[in-house]
Nucleic acid binder design. Structure first.
Length: 195
DNA sequence: TAGAGGATTGAT
DNA sequence: TCAATCCTCTAC
């Protein structure tokens, strides 16, 4: 298995990257506890549309990581409870990112169960807040390279084009017309998708 | 410096 | 349908 090169992330078309991340494998290795899963659902965000934290190139203390060169993680707290994991894309100063919304567990399931305090694998990573908890990702990973020793993305399984579904993103009604952009991508009929 | 609200989730 | 929960941003 090979880790994705930085050149994968620094391309301009964030929606293309969001599509191509489907089937890739997100892995963490924390204190020797290695766990990971195949990415089955993503959402693209760009500074050019209202759904994005960095809309209009507005940089704040929270979203400054999005302005980094592609290939680092952007992790933030939502609703005071959930950590959200994003992949920063595009070149430095162009704040695009891809939110990872769901994984299919393929490695270290026992660590995920421990972190989730459950004994059932059912829907254990089917949502952006849950997959970060299952993999042990928190805000200390904000700004970290996706080829570091604790967190990386590598080649996974091949996903053919007609397996990919594109539809509107979730939970951003405030974004007006931009909320209807078909920038949410998922693998058709995968049992691990978020609801 | 106070107040409002959020790229969610799980229980009711 | 609603509460949990706390950081971030905006307005004063």
């Amino acid at each position: 298995m090979s880790v994705l090169p930085v050149s994968f992330y620094t391309r301009k078309d964030v929606t293309q990257i969001a599509r191509q991340l489907l089937g890739k494998k997100l892995v963490t290795n924390l204190a020797g506890k290695r766990s990971g899963g195949i990415i089955v659902e993503t959402e693209a965000y760009s500074f050019r549309e209202r759904g994005c934290h960095a809309f209009g190139n507005k940089m704040t203390n929270r979203n400054k990581t999005m302005f980094e060169t592609g290939g680092v993680g952007y992790v933030y707290l939502c609703y005071g409870i959930h950590q959200m994991f994003n992949v920063v894309t595009n070149k430095q100063g162009a704040a695009d990112a891809v939110l990872v919304r769901a994984l299919e567990p393929v490695e270290g399931e026992v660590w995920m169960l421990t972190r989730m305090k459950t004994t059932s694998m059912k829907r254990i990573t089917s949502g952006p807040g849950k997959l970060t908890k299952a993999l042990g990702i928190d805000r200390t990973f904000d700004g970290k390279y996706l080829s570091s020793a604790q967190l990386w993305i590598e080649e996974g399984v091949k996903v053919v084009k007609n397996q990919i579904i594109a539809c509107a993103r979730i939970g951003i009604d405030y974004a007006g017309d931009d909320a209807r952009l078909p920038w949410r991508f998922s693998i058709q009929d995968n049992p691990w998708l978020s609801k």
